[in-house]
Amino acid sequence: MKPFTYEKASSPAQAATAVARERGAKFIAGGTNLLDLMKIEVEAPPHLVDINGLGLDAIAPTDEGGLRVGALVRNTDLAADARIRRDYGLLTRALVAGASGQLRNKATTAGNLLQRTRCPYFYDTHQACNKRLPGSGCAALGGFSRSHAIVGVSNACIAVHPSDMAVAMRALDAAVETVKPDGTTRRIPIADFYKLPGSTPHVENVLAAAELITAVTLPKPVGGTHVYHKVRDRASYAFALVSVAAVLQPDGSGRVALGGVAPMPWRVEAAEANLPKGAKAVTSSLLAGARTTPQNAMKVALVERTLGAVIADAGA
């Protein structure tokens, strides 16, 4: 770990200004991802701005009939909120499928969206990794790639975005609210929030430097049956090999988003029209153009089969 300085922000806008002031400075929320990465020098911010205690931890109704979830709402509190459990069950299910109870007590809504990949070469600072060190290459291509992405990948990076929560957020059409150092705010639909790796896998989302997430909004509830099926080798405390988040309506229509297959939560709205035709039809358009390795090629079948199980579950 490299030495760093630390300050506690006094307001969201001040936090953004403080991060903007020093090159490489970062916000720290729960710290469950950032501190781990700092200890092994994958991240080495010279300055940390603590955004806890700024009042960004409330869940409140919006004028549109949805909910505004503060950026610092803990994963545990979000999952347990009665309104979330009632109207956005998908989100609760995705959250409790992630990490462990202790981690969820610390982890925040914004931090979860921004957590970094779990590619093992990204974690080993002595290996080539374009995401960690742009231009150094990608050790996962031709190496260990069982847990890696099959869609949205590039020659530069095949890492997955590991979040469960983000997959549910994507299916629920959430939006990210931010404030920049100059005080301007904006609202970014989650569909536009993440970036594919292309030739710049170190750029993972559209946030500008020092732009602070203040909240994530959920639109009006859409009803339906909410299923989150996370598939992994062990029963808990592991990232998804694949996960399927689905909101299925009685008329057979619905929404589907995938985790564990792409550098971002993966949703192809056009594919959802195929839901009445079944899992195979949906999967072939969801995963169209998949680029697999021998180790992760099984994810194509796994997505189809998991989606099949999810549809069956929802019908049952």
């Binding site: 093992p120 974690y123 062990r234 405390y237 990232f239």
Partner: peptide, 16 residues
């Protein structure tokens, strides 16, 4: 050995 931490090298947890 690539998966050289306890996130990558999985051992059973209580739920297993």
């Amino acid at each position: 050995f690539v998966n050289h931490d306890l996130a990558g090298y999985e051992v059973p947890v209580h739920a297993d």
